[in-house]
Amino acid sequence: MTESRVTTHHTITALVEDKPGVLNRIVSMFRRRNYNIASLAVGHSEMPGMSRMTFVVECDFSILHLVTNNLDKLVEVIEVDNISENNSISRELALVKVKFSNDSAKDELMRLVSHIDNTKILSISKNEIILEIIDNEDRIESSVDLLFYNRGPSNVRIEIKEPNKVKVSNDDFYELVEIMRTGVVAMDYELDAKFNKEINN
């Protein structure tokens, strides 16, 4: 998680034909050319029979144009765009499953979540909570850090042996058991764009 931030991340989107094997062709090209995909998201587009993909690729600039040209070369890839970080919005959704030891740990977790804008509770059961975080990649990671790893000055401790476990008091804890992420989707905007105050672009 920390190591990947050292490398430069580039976001590429592609409009592709929605045919069997197209994903295989694309990832095969990445593997064959030794390009590294950090994140990949696929879904239907506004056009029937076409999908849009968003790739986050770890590489330097000299490789970036080779990645886009090799993508564009694939017969079923219709359009490739290199999304600039400066004028684009990117979003990812993370589902986070948390187990807790007892109600006091649950209350502590819920209290924390209520202070984090991008995070909400989707379900609560006897032993677990499922959270949803929607934001850009970095801020999803910040929220996860805030909840589980980097609580700042407090009496809460993380056991080295069990890094996902957060101690609320001596015997009470909550624990991150699973994160599922969709991969980043991104869209560029015009230079005169104004933003909803609630939204961090």
């Binding site: 000299s62 144009h65 080779l66």
Partner: peptide, 11 residues
């Protein structure tokens, strides 16, 4: 003719 060959091996 193939853009993916440009600057692949030699700039």
């Amino acid at each position: 003719i193939d853009p993916s060959e440009i600057n692949k091996n030699v700039t």
